[in-house]
Design a protein around this nucleic acid. Structure first.
Length: 274
DNA sequence: CACGAGACCTGTTCGC
DNA sequence: TGCGAACAGGTCTCGT
């Protein structure tokens, strides 16, 4: 599920709650269940359980694909990786087969971290920088200007797709939103970052922001068996559309591998040479 | 520094 | 129908 728009959707849901679910804010932790030990990246299982006990949730923030939940003077930081999901459930609700960690609240609700593939991780730390300190800038932040972004691209000599997916370069893009952004910008995934003109660079940043904003507006993408109610999958221009017609020019969408990741382009709209 | 391969995991889909 | 291979929204580590 989770790239920036999906994590942001989860954050907003936990923050606001809905008709059937309370907000995560204000919940007091009365116990924790750790069902897959490797889920806890830091500290030890024992310390994690001891330190979180009795704390109260006061804030939910996001940086890139990380979700930061403030509990008293510390932060519970989740990374959902490939298949993680977070939701509020009643204590009386049936446990899910893939629950990996559960925060039990005094209110009778619980926050369940469900993660089929077990790649997801959680940290509990007083200093978030130890976990998210190496992340690049938020693509949606106003401080990231066209000039800065162009300089960032010129400072590297890397293929655009792996560079955009590098979280230390830019925080939040994954496979789907990278492919969609490159298509929107009309740039080939293998273009070398240092060759981009000022215009191409600002077009790319605008494309990234447009695609991410649409993704958030549609509550993220719901693919395969993991369904959260997002709708962005119905707006894909190239992702998962190999062989289908480009919605802009009609040429068949191509799929190939870039750095072990399935990559989708329109060969006409995204020529190899700029 | 840049890049590819392998590892970490489970579940679904595809090809024979 | 059955079975193995390939593939999936991510990231880390290692070798070249």
């Amino acid at each position: 599920m989770p790239e920036l728009p999906e994590v942001e959707t989860i954050r907003r849901g936990l923050l606001a709650g809905d008709a059937c679910t309370p907000s995560l804010i204000g919940q007091r932790v009365c116990a924790v269940s750790i069902l897959w030990e490797r889920t806890v990246a830091y500290p030890s299982l024992q310390e994690f359980a001891n330190l979180i006990q009795g704390t109260v949730v006061s804030e939910i923030n996001r940086k890139g694909k990380f979700l930061l939940i403030t509990v008293d003077e510390r932060f519970v930081i989740f990374h959902l990786r490939m298949s993680g999901d977070l939701r509020m459930r009643r204590e009386s609700d049936e446990p899910s087969q893939h629950d990996r960690l559960i925060l039990h609240f005094c209110s009778g609700w619980k926050l369940t971290f469900t993660d089929t593939r077990k790649f997801g991780r959680v940290w509990l730390t007083p200093d978030p920088q130890t976990v998210i300190g190496k992340l690049g800038p938020e693509p949606l932040a106003a401080e990231l200007t066209n000039e800065i972004f162009h300089e960032m691209l010129l400072a590297r000599s890397r293929q655009l797709k792996p560079l955009l997916m590098d979280q230390s370069f830019l925080a939040g893009l994954g496979n789907i939103y990278t492919d969609e952004s490159l298509f929107t910008a009309g740039l080939h995934p293998l273009r070398v970052s240092s060759t981009l003109t000022k215009k191409e660079s600002s077009d790319l940043l605008a494309a990234i922001r447009l695609v991410l904003a649409k993704g958030i507006l549609e509550h993220g993408s719901s693919i395969d068996w993991v369904y959260r109610g997002g709708n962005f999958q119905n707006h894909f221009q190239v992702y998962q559309r190999a062989g289908e017609s480009c919605l802009r020019c009609g040429a068949p969408i191509q799929k190939f591998r870039v750095g072990q990741r399935g990559t989708h382009i329109c060969p006409v709209c995204q020529p190899e040479r700029g």
